[in-house]
């Protein structure tokens, strides 16, 4: 199949970006989206042009490194997957595919499709950990945890920090990311002890980083590759409120 790509090119964070058009031919539908980009990049290098920079690492949907906006959707047209899990069979011969970097004030573009997501790291540094002494590894089942809580904490912990929630939010709010981290600890005995101060610090840090305010459109939940529920946002709202008044 043949596709036409309209790709955002920007040589560095200071320069002005623009869309470049590339015609890619002989694309196999078994190729992943990134393999198609790799093929294009090889041809660009052969021609002596600068290849398209994009973030990727594991290419198996678990690391959270990749992520671009494809045809108006974070991680492309298919829900519940990262960009690296998208395959060319999802497109048709002759399609024009628009590829844009995550857009948010808190995610400045570094180059082409690569954005700086260290704002999420700084939010993690403000409280995404357990600092009380929990001792050595306890015997299995020595600490009773209900199945419901364990499952919900695990669901929250499946967040890979890719930033699709911020990218798709019309306000660039990081509430789904931050709430997943707040939830994952608040539901378990070791994390529960610091849940108030954690919610307070992580929300403060999120606000400082320049993310927008949540307006409950739930676009984040719809685009999250790990399908994390907005019920975690409700939990963070509760925890933050409790932390503020007590």
């Amino acid at each position: 199949m043949n596709v036409t790509l309209k790709v955002w090119r920007q040589s560095n964070s200071q320069s002005k970006g623009f869309f470049s058009i590339y015609n890619v031919s002989d694309v196999s539908e078994e190729m992943s989206f990134f393999e198609m980009l790799d093929m294009l990049n090889e041809s660009l290098v052969e021609k002596g042009e600068e290849p398209i920079a994009f973030d990727h690492d594991c290419r198996e949907g678990i690391c959270g490194t990749c992520g671009v906006f494809i045809n108006g959707r974070a991680h492309g047209p298919i829900s519940g997957i990262t960009t690296c899990q998208l395959h060319m069979r999802r497109f048709n011969n002759g399609d024009t595919i628009i590829i844009e970097p995550w857009r948010a004030k808190a995610f400045p573009v570094i180059k082409d499709l690569v954005v700086d997501r260290t704002s999420l790291d700084r939010v993690m540094m403000s409280g995404g950990y357990v600092s009380v002494n929990t001792g050595g590894t306890p015997d299995a089942n020595a600490i009773p945890i209900s199945k419901v809580n364990a499952d919900e904490a695990m669901d929250a912990a499946s967040c890979i920090g890719c930033g699709a929630c911020v990218a798709t939010c019309k306000n660039s709010s990081a509430m789904l990311f931050v709430s997943a981290k707040v939830s994952q600890y608040a539901l378990l005995p070791q994390g529960m002890i610091e849940k108030k101060i954690r919610a307070q610090n992580m929300v403060d840090s999120m606000d400082e980083e320049g993310f927008g305010n949540c307006s409950n459109t739930y676009a984040c939940e719809a685009e999250c590759p790990k399908e994390i529920s907005v019920s975690h946002i409700a939990r963070m709202n509760r925890e933050f409120f409790k932390a503020s008044i007590s």
Partner: peptide
């Protein structure tokens, strides 16, 4: 504030597919 947090818009944004 939310406008300030999103200074650049997408060329294509299919918001109808993920929110009401």
């Amino acid at each position: 504030e939310n406008r300030k947090a999103t200074p650049e818009k997408y060329l294509m944004n299919k918001a109808a597919e993920n929110s009401k």
